[in-house]
């Protein structure tokens, strides 16, 4: 018992000594330090963010910065905050965050800013005062225009189409529908939207809705799926109904989830931005903010190999969405 006690004491002393030693401020002597940029995805395993990281890595190599990439692997909402707080203590130069829960994360981001860390967001924004810039992957107009133009092109400018959405209440979905409708009214007045159906962001619900649409509207020329699970869902329904090629499918989704249908000719076009470019631009913007090359009020921003980007207010805009088709979809693996 006594031996155990003294061992406890000894260990206690070691622990204390360990902390004491490094409680002194870190030495500033270590010459030209590499800039460290921390990139926070919504979740780490998501193919979308893995692809963002690819572009981010490329930018980090070009710029000679150290890139930390970390995010939650489990659905604990507190994790993003903890990771940011760890980075604050670690003393990174810039944090770029894709925010899962806006208000919660903004607390941590504000704290980072108070400690002199430059903060930007990408993919999903925080509260405006918690960050300096938001790298905006696509404006609602950009998405709406791209989808509607593609639909009109495939239908030859006239005919019936239906939209499958995630839910009738989601703010971003409503915004996209508004932009789609605006584009239809001004540019493609002969296109007619006959139905708008929610699928709760579920592939099998989307498939059921699409099947119902196919039998309810015999003249339907095209199904437009504006949430990512709905695109393969609608394609599967069209394929099973044997209407591939006669009823076309387009939508907003990941190339990887739709590759099969695109190559089979069921789905014509998948619209999304180039996620690699999003990661690339984000790291470039964070770096420029640290070095002082990017300041509030700038109107444009040049990001390495990708060239010039427009800045609207405090949003750095990635640009027009990209259309993945039979011809190019094999080049993208996210």
């Amino acid at each position: 018992m006594k031996a155990a006690h003294s061992l406890h004491l000894l260990l206690g002393v070691v622990l204390l000594a360990g902390c004491q030693r490094s409680a002194e401020p870190p030495s500033q002597a270590d010459a030209p330090r590499k800039i460290t940029i921390a990139l926070l995805p919504k979740s780490k395993g998501n193919a979308y963010f893995v692809s963002c990281k690819k572009g981010a890595d490329r930018a980090a190599r070009e710029l000679g910065v150290e890139l930390l990439f970390d995010g939650p692997t489990d659905p604990d909402p507190a994790k993003q905050n903890e990771i940011i707080e760890n980075w604050i203590t670690l003393g990174v130069d810039a944090i770029a965050a894709a925010c899962e829960n806006k208000e919660g994360i903004s607390t941590a981001l504000r704290k980072a800013r108070a400690r002199g860390i430059r903060v930007i967001t990408y993919d999903a924004d925080a509260l405006p005062e918690a960050r300096e810039f938001f790298v905006n992957q696509a404006t609602p107009e950009g998405i709406g225009n791209a989808l509607m133009d593609e639909a009109a092109r495939l239908c030859g400018g006239e005919g019936e189409f239906a939209i499958i959405t995630a839910s009738l209440t989601a703010a971003n979905m409503i915004e996209w529908q508004r932009c789609i409708e605006a584009r239809r009214a001004t540019r493609h007045p002969n296109m007619r939207m006959v139905a708008l159906r929610p699928c709760d962001d579920l592939k099998d619900r989307a498939q059921a809705e699409a099947t119902a649409l196919l039998s309810a509207y015999p003249n339907l020329k095209l199904i437009m799926a504006i949430c990512s699970p709905a695109v393969p869902g609608a394609a599967e329904a069209v394929k099973q109904a044997g209407k591939a090629g006669r009823v076309r499918v387009i939508g907003l989704g990941l190339p990887s989830e739709n590759r099969r249908y695109v190559k089979e000719g069921v789905t014509d076009t998948v619209i999304l931005w180039k996620t690699e470019d999003l990661g690339y631009l984000t790291v470039h913007a964070a770096h420029a903010l640290v070095t002082g090359r990017l300041k509030a009020g700038d109107k444009t921003f040049r990001a390495g190999a990708l060239g010039e980007f427009e800045i609207q207010g405090d949003n750095i805009v990635l640009g027009e969405p990209f259309a993945f088709t039979k011809d190019n979809i094999d080049q993208y693996d996210f």
Partner: peptide, 19 residues
């Protein structure tokens, strides 16, 4: 715990700080 402290202290310069 002692091993953890010693190892992380050696690997991460900011690990042992009060912060």
């Amino acid at each position: 715990l002692a091993v953890e402290f010693i190892a992380f202290n050696a690997l991460g310069p900011r690990f042992g700080t009060t912060d």
